[in-house]
Simulated scan of single mutants.
Amino acid sequence: MAKIAQYSAGGGARRAPVGTVLDRMRAFRSDWPADDGIAVFNRVYLTVTERLARCIDNGGFPDRESAVTLQVLFAERYLSAADTVAAGGRAPACWRPLFQFRRHPGVRPLQFALAGINAHIGHDLALAVVDTCRTLDCRPPDLEADFDRVGDILTMLEERIREDLMPGPDLLEIADPLTHLLGAWSLERARDGAWTAARLLWGLRELPSLAEEFTERLDAGVGLVGRCLLTPLR
């Protein structure tokens, strides 16, 4: 059970309010240079989190408490990874490529943004669903409507991110390596994988050794995809 505890940011512990999470992201925005790869992702994720917070406040989620809990526990996984690296520690494998390549001149901003989204959706979201279920004493099906609503907002924002961070008209050229690289990754598939992983982890909660093995493999697999997304293209 040790590995699950290590990766559980919630697990019934007292949760930070959404405002605290946003303040921490804004502080990171001030601390890092604009062209830092983590800063690129942080700007994107701050926009996502602000959008989700407004949507929750405006009644856009079926259950406000579960939506807020999922949002906060989800965000805290990214914040925990950033804090760990800042303290000289080692980030989870899914985040490691982004921290390692954050200042590489051959990686484009859109690659940094998508690599962060890949780590956060592919790995963190599944574990945040389990964290939320433990915190609220519910099951993954109880969160499915909130999960889908979060996914819809992320999909809309991904489209905007691609538009904002496109390097220029050359992206339309089929020979551009970035065209092929981005075409190999899909947020929708990552969302589907995260939901499946959350359900599997919940089903394995009474089998800690299998849950630990699955979590490690999920972390490593998402990290490998992130490393591919950060292939230097210049």
Rank of each mutant, 00 (worst) to 15 (best):
W32Q: 13
P33K: 13
P33Y: 12
P33T: 14
A34K: 15
D35K: 14
D35T: 14
D36C: 12
D36Y: 14
G37E: 01
G37Q: 02
I38Y: 13
I38R: 15
I38A: 11
I38W: 12
A39V: 06
A39E: 14
V40H: 03
V40W: 03
V40T: 12
V40A: 08
F41Q: 06
F41I: 07
R43P: 00
R43V: 01
Y45A: 00
Y45Q: 02
L46T: 10
T47F: 00
V48F: 02
V48W: 03
V48S: 05
V48Q: 05
T49R: 02
E50M: 08
R51V: 02
L52I: 15
A53W: 07
R54N: 10
C55R: 14
D57A: 15
N58D: 13
N58E: 15
G60E: 01
F61L: 08
P62H: 00
P62R: 04
D63C: 10
D63R: 13
D63F: 07
R64G: 02
E65N: 11
E65H: 08
E65K: 10
E65Y: 00
A67T: 04
V68S: 03
T69G: 05
T69E: 03
L70G: 06
L70S: 05
L70I: 03
Q71R: 09
Q71S: 12
L73A: 04
L73H: 08
L73Q: 12
L73F: 08
F74A: 05
A75M: 11
A75N: 15
E76H: 11
E76F: 09
R77A: 11
R77T: 12
Y78R: 12
L79C: 10
S80Y: 10
S80Q: 14
A81K: 14
A81R: 11
A82E: 13
A82T: 14
A82Q: 13
D83S: 15
T84L: 15
V85P: 04
V85Q: 06
A86W: 04
A86V: 06
A86F: 03
A87G: 09
A87S: 14
G88S: 03
R90P: 07
A91L: 05
P92L: 01
A93W: 01
A93K: 09
C94Y: 05
C94V: 09
C94L: 03
W95E: 01
W95K: 03
R96V: 05
R96D: 08
P97F: 07
F99K: 04
F99H: 09
Q100M: 02
F101L: 08
R103V: 02
R103C: 04
R103A: 05
P105N: 06
G106V: 11
P109H: 05
P109W: 02
P109G: 05
L110W: 02
L110V: 09
Q111W: 05
Q111L: 06
F112S: 07
F112I: 07
F112P: 08
A113G: 12
A113F: 10
L114T: 11
L114H: 11
A115I: 07
A115K: 03
G116P: 09
G116N: 09
I117N: 06
A119K: 11
A119I: 10
A119H: 11
H120M: 12
I121V: 15
I121Q: 10
G122F: 11
G122I: 13
H123V: 10
